[in-house]
Design a protein around this nucleic acid. Structure first.
Length: 643
DNA sequence: TTAGGGTTAG
């Protein structure tokens, strides 16, 4: 390497942003090194892979080279394979085959197979695999391992096993890949068998087992392996925290985090993001603040992913102000995750216009949205009734950014139309979708029928749901509520009988509230104890005050059966969110905001009660239900009764 | 002369 090349490389390492990269490019053009394929290749690598948000620039840069070499092609293919548009990786590969005289090498195949995996394109994957065979590269350790992962991503564990069987001397990485492949395709037993056959098991192999078990929801198997494994490293601990948090077991996630600290292991950025994700789910704002303090003291504030998790935890705990503070204070450049999480935070609170403004600001700052960003913005539009904007973003996603809509995007569109009352349009949209609608899609439509009391369409939708997911209790409950609102008590009774015959149980509603850093959960209709007694007593007092001072009349539509009015009133008054609210009012200091997390959607009567309480008691109440946040203040809710 | 595969992160 010449000394001028060496100088260039050390300069390049300093470039962290698009602006500095452009300055670097101007510099090498000036000194005549821009045609030096080594320097140009390093610059391309830097933009396409090393730093973020400069992939578009890398693509433009690539076009400037008259004769790109195989390194440049491989580098661009690699950068694109990790992007939100891995299909462009394939087109680059095809162009390379056409223009370049040299044959693709092991690097080309490793990167391009990764693209096929990320694109979940089995057809492309098989073609590429057969080309690798032609070049004798299919048994190459790196190529073979990527091929295994590709087949696993495409759901073909049998092909993955075949490739593994043909590998000459699989090393530990290849073994780990085949175990992961089994898990990826849902073959938990197969994964364990392969693990037992491994000639060598280092920490990573055990970690593969932990991750596989937790992703399969096999938490007890994960715990057993965790206790058995000879050496637990920080990845093992992080995997347990993240795995339990993802399965909704936030208490256990907190437990692993405390245990990790007790045994003297320093939390790393992933265990911190994991514990913050548990805070986000549980809505434990106070505990989140403690973790925030720890992050500050332990010097993790410069890590973008930690900031993102913190931002997300604050916004899911209902404190969009703190979330915004974290967002604004983020070091260096915000990542696409930061923008997306901030948008989702605003969307959950019903700040649709603000989310749209943020999207525009993001585009102006040169950050490219990915598929998840579009889920957030579409969600924001549907929850704020911004129908035209939502449609515009939906077409922009494909036309401008080349992102193919996934099932989640279609779901957002169905919600957008359905929530706004355009039920026929939503129904037509579902029937015209290019991919076949899942139960979730129909369920969104059923939810919309429930909001707008559309009994006929609800029945049609429920038929489709019964074919796809017959035992889902939520769907039955939703339909029966639709009947109840319409006063169709005979239909309600028939539905209840069929639920009982099929032994379908209603998912119990629970609500949680944090008081003095302790989480209390309430389940409607469960046995009494000291805590619930305290809640019921306060509830009685509150309801009396509401009737006298707030003019409250109970809404009973959300009760399942045709029972006497008074009994119905009893059933809604015991809803878990009311109990949590009453408990919070009994225990929390006056003037404190009451924050409640509920697993299901908040019911109509509870919603009315909370609005009245916020007015009569001069209180602020924040409820996070399954679909969004409700902030009650002065008798109004932030959802504008639109949820 | 440059780079790559398996585990944790919205």
């Amino acid at each position: 390497m010449s000394s001028s090349e060496q100088l260039c490389l050390s300069l390049l390492r300093q470039c962290k942003t698009l602006k500095t990269v452009k300055q670097f490019h101007a510099y090498i053009s000036k000194v005549g090194l821009d045609a030096n394929s080594f320097v140009a290749g390093k610059l391309l690598l830097h933009c396409a892979v090393t730093i973020s948000d400069t992939l578009d620039y890398a693509r433009r840069l690539f076009l400037l080279f008259p004769d790109p070499d195989i390194f440049m092609y491989n580098t661009l293919i690699r950068g694109l394979s990790e992007s939100s548009t891995p299909q462009y990786s394939l087109t680059t590969y095809v162009e390379m085959r056409r223009r370049l005289m040299a044959a693709p090498d092991s690097f080309s195949f490793a990167f391009i197979l990764k693209a096929a995996a990320n694109y979940r394109s089995l057809k492309a994957g098989i073609q590429l695999h057969s080309q690798a065979v032609t070049y004798g590269l299919d048994t190459h350790l790196f190529v073979g391992t990527t091929t295994i992962s590709m087949y696993a991503e495409c759901g073909c564990v049998a092909f993955a096993r075949k490739v593994f069987g043909e590998m000459f001397e699989p090393n530990v990485v290849a073994w780990n890949a085949i175990v992961t492949a089994c898990f990826r395709c849902g073959d938990v037993k197969g994964a364990k068998i392969m693990f037992n056959q491994m000639p060598f098991q280092n920490s990573t192999s055990w970690n593969v087992m932990l991750a596989g078990y937790t992703k399969a929801g096999e938490l007890e198997l994960a715990r057993t392996s965790f206790l058995e494994m000879p050496i637990k490293d920080d990845v093992s601990w992080s995997t347990m925290i993240v795995g339990f948090a993802h399965n909704g077991c936030f208490e256990e996630a907190f437990g692993f985090f405390r245990e990790l600290q007790r045994v003297g292991i320093r939390p790393n950025e992933v265990s911190l993001t994991g514990v913050l994700s548990a805070c986000a789910q549980a809505g434990t704002f106070e505990f989140g603040k403690i973790i925030h303090g720890f992050i500050e003291k332990a010097g993790f504030l410069h890590i973008i992913s930690v900031n993102n998790a913190l931002l997300d935890a604050y916004s899911r705990c209902g404190n969009v102000g703190m979330a915004h503070l974290v967002f604004e204070s983020m070091p260096e450049k915000k990542s696409i995750v930061s923008w997306t999480s901030m948008m989702a935070g605003l969307a959950m609170q019903g700040y649709g216009e603000e989310a749209v403004q943020l999207f525009n600001k993001m585009e102006k700052s040169g950050v490219r949205p990915d598929g998840i960003t579009f889920i957030s913005i579409l969600y924001a539009c549907s929850h704020a009734g911004l129908i035209e904007q939502g449609c515009w973003y939906f077409s922009k996603m494909t036309e401008v950014y080349g992102i193919e809509p996934a099932i989640e995007h279609y779901g957002c569109m169905v919600d957008l139309y359905g929530r706004a009352g355009q039920l026929e349009k939503a129904y037509d949209f579902v029937n015209q979708m290019p991919i076949s609608p899942t139960a979730i899609i129909w369920r969104i439509l059923l939810g919309a029928c429930s909001i707008h009391g559309h009994v006929k369409l609800a029945e049609r939708v429920k038929e489709r749901l019964s074919e796809l997911d017959p035992n889902n209790s939520g769907d039955h409950v939703l339909l029966s509520n639709i009947y109840a609102i319409a006063g169709k008590w005979k239909d309600v009774a028939a539905l209840r009988r069929s639920m009982a015959d099929q032994k379908i149980k209603k998912t119990p509603g629970w609500s949680m509230i944090e008081v003095d850093k302790v989480m209390y959960s309430f389940v409607a209709g469960r046995g009494r104890n000291e805590i619930t007694d305290e809640a019921y007593e306060k509830l009685r007092e509150m309801m009396l005050k509401l009737r006298v001072e707030g003019g409250y009349i109970p809404e009973v539509g959300s009760v399942l059966h045709d029972i006497e009015e008074e009994e119905k009133e009893d059933a809604v008054s015991g809803h878990s969110e009311k109990l949590a609210l009453a408990f919070g009012m009994a225990r929390l200091r006056e003037g404190r905001t009451i924050r409640i997390v509920k697993n299901l959607r908040v019911c109509g009567d509870c919603h009315t009660v909370m609005k009245l309480i916020s007015k009569v008691y001069g209180l602020e109440i924040v409820v996070r239900d399954r679909s969004r946040f409700h902030s009650f203040k002065d008798g109004f809710c932030s959802c504008r009764d639109y949820w």
